[in-house]
């Protein structure tokens, strides 16, 4: 995890000075700092920083991963990574419900209400899929 967190943390080192330079440079050209670039470049640094710091913290809790060992092999990374759903039908009705919600904004609120009802059913169905029946 050290290499991957380092890759993301490099983004902080790259984007922070770029944001500052961009601010001063646009200020010199236009007489005021151009806000879109300053905000987005600064938040790019924050974005890569939050991923980098979190991966680093996760890496400290786990054993040394093969990606940090110079002579590590890919098959050493095999093992249990957590729970993954093999397949699920629920995203399909949830997607259709989202479609009705946006359609409702364009056509009329009654479509929105129908979409909301479908959406609640699909969302609950998806969130509880592995917490009911045989899993309970």
């Amino acid at each position: 995890m050290k290499v991957s967190s380092g890759l993301f943390l490099a983004g902080v080192i790259a984007f922070t000075p770029v944001a500052i330079i961009y601010g001063f440079w646009s200020n010199a050209v236009d007489g005021r700092p151009e806000p879109v670039g300053v905000v987005c470049l600064a938040l790019l640094a924050v974005m890569s920083g939050m991923i980098g710091v979190y991966i680093r913290a996760t890496g400290k809790r786990l054993d040394v991963s093969p990606s940090d060992v110079p002579d590590g092999d890919i098959d050493q990374a095999a093992g249990d990574y957590g729970f993954f759903s093999p397949y699920s039908w629920w995203p399909l009705p949830l997607g259709l419900a989202a479609l009705m919600l946006f359609l409702g904004l364009a056509i009329g609120w009654w479509v929105f209400v129908v979409g909301a009802i479908f959406g609640i059913v699909a969302l609950v169905g998806w969130a509880f899929e592995y917490f009911t029946g045989d899993f309970a």
Binding site: V39, C40, L43, L44, M47
Partner: peptide, 10 residues
């Protein structure tokens, strides 16, 4: 959440 951050950046 980092992608959400860029949404709010916009």
């Amino acid at each position: 959440l980092s992608s959400e951050l860029m949404f709010f950046a916009g």
